[in-house]
Write a protein that binds this DNA or RNA. Sequence first.
DNA 1: TCGCCTTGTGGGCAAATATTCATTTGGAAC
DNA 2: GTTCCAAATGAATATTTGCCCACAAGGCGA
Lengths: 319, 319
Amino acid sequence: MNIPVELDPSIDDQAARAAWLYYVGGLTQDQIAAEMGVSRQRAQRLVSRAVAAGLIHVRLNHHLASCQELETALRTRFHLVRCRVMPGLGPDRDPVRAIAPAAAAELERVLREPEALVIALGTGRAMRGMVEAVGSIEAPQHCLVSLIGNIAPDGSASYFDVIMRLAEKVHAPHYPMPVPVISDTAEENATFQSLGPIRKVRELARAANVTFVGVGQMSDDAPLLTDGFLKPAELREVQGAGAVGEVAGRIFDAEGRYLDLAINRRLGGMQAPPTRPDRPVIGIAAGPSKIPAIAAALRSGILNGLVTDEATARGVLAL
Amino acid sequence: MNIPVELDPSIDDQAARAAWLYYVGGLTQDQIAAEMGVSRQRAQRLVSRAVAAGLIHVRLNHHLASCQELETALRTRFHLVRCRVMPGLGPDRDPVRAIAPAAAAELERVLREPEALVIALGTGRAMRGMVEAVGSIEAPQHCLVSLIGNIAPDGSASYFDVIMRLAEKVHAPHYPMPVPVISDTAEENATFQSLGPIRKVRELARAANVTFVGVGQMSDDAPLLTDGFLKPAELREVQGAGAVGEVAGRIFDAEGRYLDLAINRRLGGMQAPPTRPDRPVIGIAAGPSKIPAIAAALRSGILNGLVTDEATARGVLAL
DNA sequence: TCGCCTTGTGGGCAAATATTCATTTGGAAC
DNA sequence: GTTCCAAATGAATATTTGCCCACAAGGCGA
């Protein structure tokens, strides 16, 4: 007979319990305070801590008619195998917030497949948001592989760190790409790419059953620029060459054709695998400035799956 | 180019959008009102409607240490194949509210299995709560079968109607048991049971891959009494015979041995199938008065899976 | 030991939210 | 066309929540 008694529950336990009572039980914070024997303020802090720590997940269980129509329109127009359009959150809010839960649901759907799959992942804010929104789920049968180098220009080894965080959550084997996202010289990059272990990772990624990637715009607010992978002069140069977007660091033009650029030879990681109906490559992206990039990637079939928000979906369809 | 425009979104669409903006977007109801062009009160009403209609799902993404310990204790003590213990919501709240989301998650896990399964279901408040909490999920490959007659003493054909509601949600073929829960005479019951279609349903249920049932207590607040299936005198009689609980209407004693009672011959439906490690029979039940019933059912192996709340788990382990 | 800083706590208050109630609106029955 | 009812609305109000601040406890270096 081993009946556990509550001695010193961790702060997260307390927070989770408070949030549970608040959101699921519908108690007021006063009642929670009484129930848990703490002050009301502490109850309030516990609830907000649980929310901040992502212990609580809210999901919409209803397909808005307007979003469904957009999904259908995108699906048929671009021959998508997966498509999710979420309601927007208003013009001046981070659209990642809107699409992260849906992207996470999409990823969870894949993770729940019983047979072993290779899941390739890009990086970026949307990817990170997606992984953060993934719930606790065990998926040790799958294999997670990164498309993109994880060494940032400043030498730090964790550009968003999408693979690691996800692997930690689902306890799956994972293969980060331990090369610079972008090397200083083509030679340095070639050296990295020729290393045996890295070739292995590349082979694995090439055979990915499902791929999740962000989509970067190449306008003046390009993530490649913001994150320091391109210098302003380089950005202007590729803009001149017709660049409108980028997936896994590979830059393409308005028709979604990959461009043959000098910087390509310095790029680590690898291009997203080619799309096939049974090998979806799903873009997770939203925001007005990304519209041309998303449209281009869909047009040429770099992507055959998309999770986005309402406003972006409309924008893409209007192009 | 077919860009949908928002003309007259349904009330549920509006509610879902408002709730989305509120919970996911973190807007205040004032902002939502402005965004959607309605009054603040209306925004408030939309949000609460969405919550009431279950359009929004909140789930806790954290296993409380104390609950995990209880799960482990129950699992080893009673050789359970599935076990979930949720935090309670305080003594004077409906415990169904606490366990329904977890039970629904358990059911969804089964529904997501790709190969076709036979899923047997009991009835009761906990079952209904579970089904209500199930999200939108397609599972047409499975087959839902009821263990219990669906004709109530007053002749109405929907004693909680668990099967129908679930089938409607997941679009699975379903086999209600179109017999009285309890007939007036043994002969009437025998007549019903001998009908061909009903025998088919019984056979199906016997081979169920997974079974979900409620657990009824046989104290003075027995659900069988409350719902009018037993008369007070009958209840006292079976109490005298040692009845402590009931699963799918079949009454058992404190050791979980089914009792041979006169009313058995009038019971429609069928007993829960025997437990096997690969054929879980999962009890969904919580509440102080159910503790002896749950303990008995676990002890004799009527159940080999359980979803309950903290307080009940402690009570069961303390027996 | 003393200050100093970090971290957590409770009180109070303004903002946000829920509820109540009187009123209007839309529609069905007559 | 009228009447009646039920549902929806907006205003008023009560409750709840989020936030700021002042303060206390505890670690840490001087």
